[in-house]
């Protein structure tokens, strides 16, 4: 499924003294199969944007609403996820949500059921078009728990609240991907985890990307993570999209990114520092390529 947004705007508390424009005429396309990164500060509009993707925030549809807010209706707003037209209020949003999984920040805080099994099954039961059989549910939950790296038989009867932090997060992710969504959106999936936990989550995302979820979108502050994993990156700032580029090209704009107050990957920082010594190192900003290019530059060759 392809995500296509054109001229998308959104204002919180429109018409009140607290009104704030979160998205200003954003156009962005995410192709099927991408591992897409979204970066930007808190309040840059990135969360507002991703919440549109499974209709947690709606594109205002009725003209009346616009007149009330004394605004012209954006006749040209387009928001499509696959065949779902999100500007049409007759769209089956429930079906959309089963296809677009959304993992919020600190998803472990949304766990609620008595057992891990029930919590993971929650989404599956909600989205099933007809009442699923016990067997179907069990299979789905087993698959979901297995792919996030947990032992189904070991954890199914446990209370999700008795698990460790990293395990809780994986259960929460299992609860989202249990419907095998084609698009998976994650807001800061590794926030608050220690380095090892982070690594595990990134491995899990690649596992999902190569199996269930054709498209993965991550919102992240960790530029090393972005440079290492993403096919393309969108930079949000002040409700607008400043860049949409592959990391390889994006981080050649390191100075601009830093001036926006954003971070850049370590490799880009080193490249920037090297410029002072008259060395223009070309690499795609992954650690692997950085090492390769640096060693090549020094004529050391590369050990394959």
């Amino acid at each position: 499924m392809r995500i296509q947004a054109e001229h998308l705007s959104y204002t919180y508390n429109a018409g009140s003294p607290f009104a704030s424009a979160a998205l200003k005429d954003v156009s962005l396309t995410v192709e099927e199969g991408e591992f897409f990164g979204i970066i930007g500060h808190t309040g840059s509009g990135k969360s507002t944007f991703v919440q549109h993707l499974n209709a947690l925030l709606r594109v205002p549809t009725s003209l009346r609403k616009y007149r009330k807010k004394r605004k012209d209706p954006p006749s040209n707003t387009v928001l499509k996820v696959g065949d779902f037209d999100l500007t049409n209020k007759k769209t089956d949003f429930n079906a959309l949500r089963s296809k677009v999984g959304m993992v919020m920040q600190y998803p472990e805080y949304q766990l609620f059921a008595e057992t891990v099994f029930d919590d993971v099954a929650f989404g599956y039961k909600n989205f099933a078009p007809e009442k699923p059989t016990k067997e179907q549910i069990e299979n789905a939950v087993r698959d979901a728990l297995t792919i996030v790296g947990l032992d189904f038989d070991e954890v199914k009867e446990m209370s999700p609240f008795d698990l460790s932090g990293g395990q809780k997060r994986r259960v929460a992710i299992a609860g989202v991907i249990v419907t095998k969504p084609e698009i998976l959106v994650l807001d800061e999936p590794a926030a608050g985890l220690d380095p090892l936990g982070k690594q595990e989550i990134m491995e899990l995302l690649h596992r999902l990307h190569s199996s269930w979820c054709r498209t993965v979108i991550i919102v992240s502050h960790d530029m090393d993570e972005i440079a290492e994993n993403c096919t393309r990156v969108a930079v949000f700032s002040d409700g607008e999209v400043k860049y949409v580029l592959p990391p390889k090209e994006l981080f050649t704009h390191s100075e601009e990114l830093l001036s926006l107050g954003l971070d850049v990957p370590l490799t880009a920082k080193i490249c920037l520092a090297l410029k002072k010594y008259g060395i223009d190192l070309k690499c795609d900003f992954t650690t692997e390529d950085f090492l390769k290019q640096t060693l090549a530059l020094a004529g050391k060759g590369v050990k394959e």
Binding site: A273, K276, T294, K303
Partner: peptide, 22 residues
Amino acid sequence: LRAGGMPVTDTLDVDRLAKEIA
């Protein structure tokens, strides 16, 4: 880098590393 044959010392400072690479 060291394993690849570039004699840089262990540092946690970006500028120093860049200087050594240079």
